[in-house]
Each structure stands twice: as structure tokens, then as C-alpha cells.
């Protein structure tokens, strides 16, 4: 057992646990953040996707000892039902969630993708951004559309911010 400190969704967390426990298990069992799901436990499906310092990883493949001092963002940190992120709003608008068990992983991967793009992405670029996530319900069409919608929204907001001389506008 060891005491591990790291940040989750902007808040300091201190966990007494086995250092070899997976980050996913610590998030779910110790911190009760159950948005991240276990599906394959092998890094094949992306249902457990979280961001570590803005990089998307499968939290089932990360041992909690490895994230000592790191900054982690889970789906709960992307937005809440009373204050949703544009990507979450787009998923609802476009019908991109069905059973929803894979959705948090897609939201995290899509948010990270949106953080990195500098222009409205092509369909191929969007597909590359979520190629590590498996969905069994939707057939992906509406997920891709949702990310496209959110990306367009992001850049139209940036455009509006620039026009108004507000260069601090994050756009999302």
C-alpha cells in the first residue's frame, strides 16, 4: 500500500492503495467516478479513456503509481448535465449516444481531439481521433457527425471572439 497524490478534474486527490491497482479501478472504486467504464480491460475499446496531461490514454492500462503528481481529466471533468461541454451537447443533438456505455470514452477522446485541432477537421481526421474507441450500437455515423458539429461550433465561436477583439476567447 502507498499514498498516491494526483489531480483529477482539477482537484487534488490522495489515495491509499496498492500502487499496482489500475487507474481505472482507482477512479471507479476509490473515487466513485464511474463515468469511465471497463469493457475489455486490454486497451482495445477505449471505454475507459481519460486524459493524462491532455493525452488520451486507456486508464485500464495505467497503474495508479504511474500517475503520481499528474493531472487527470475524466468525463466528469469535461462537463456536467447542468453545464455541458459543446461536445456533449453535440452528441445529444446528433443522436450519437445509444446504450451510452461507450459514450464517456468517446466524449473524452473527442474533447481531446477538439483541443488539438486548429481548423475544422476533415472526416478522416475525426475518424483518426476516435479510432481507438469501439461502439457497438451506433455504427459511428452519428458520433462522427457530432464531433464535426462540435468542431464547427468551436471555430465559429472563436471566429466570433476574434471579430469582437476578444482574443482570450477559448471558443469552448
Amino acid at each position: 500500500m502507498a499514498t498516491i497524490r494526483f489531480k483529477v478534474n482539477g482537484k487534488e486527490k490522495v489515495v491509499d492503495t496498492h500502487t499496482t491497482k489500475t487507474l481505472l479501478d482507482v477512479l471507479r472504486d476509490d473515487l466513485y467516478l464511474t463515468g469511465s467504464k471497463e469493457c475489455c480491460g486490454k486497451g482495445e475499446c477505449g471505454s475507459c479513456s481519460v486524459m493524462i496531461n491532455d493525452e488520451v490514454v486507456c486508464s485500464c492500462l495505467v497503474l495508479v503509481g504511474q500517475v503520481e503528481g499528474e493531472d487527470i481529466k475524466t468525463v466528469e471533468g469535461v462537463g456536467t448535465s447542468t453545464n455541458m461541454d459543446i461536445i456533449q451537447e453535440a452528441f445529444i443533438k446528433e443522436g450519437a449516444t445509444q446504450c451510452g456505455y461507450c459514450t464517456p470514452g468517446f466524449i473524452v477522446a473527442a474533447r481531446s481531439f477538439l483541443n488539438k485541432i486548429e481548423k475544422v477537421p476533415t472526416l478522416e481526421e475525426i475518424e483518426e481521433g476516435i479510432a481507438g474507441n469501439i461502439c457497438r450500437c451506433t455504427g459511428y455515423t452519428k458520433i462522427v457527425k457530432a464531433i464535426q458539429t462540435a468542431a464547427e461550433e468551436r471555430f465559429s465561436r472563436i471566429g466570433a471572439a476574434v471579430t469582437q477583439g476578444n482574443l482570450q476567447g477559448k471558443g469552448d
Partner: peptide, 23 residues
Amino acid sequence: KRVPRLDGPERVTGELKYMTDYH
């Protein structure tokens, strides 16, 4: 009508508790 999923917000935020999410 294209009514968006009424349970959408809890699904896209990870707030929805599936049976295997309870503690």
C-alpha cells in the same frame, strides 16, 4: 419528430448509473 434522447445529458456526462456502476 427528431426528438433528441431525453436521457441524453446523463449519458454523455457519465452521470448515468448502470447497474455495474453502483457502489
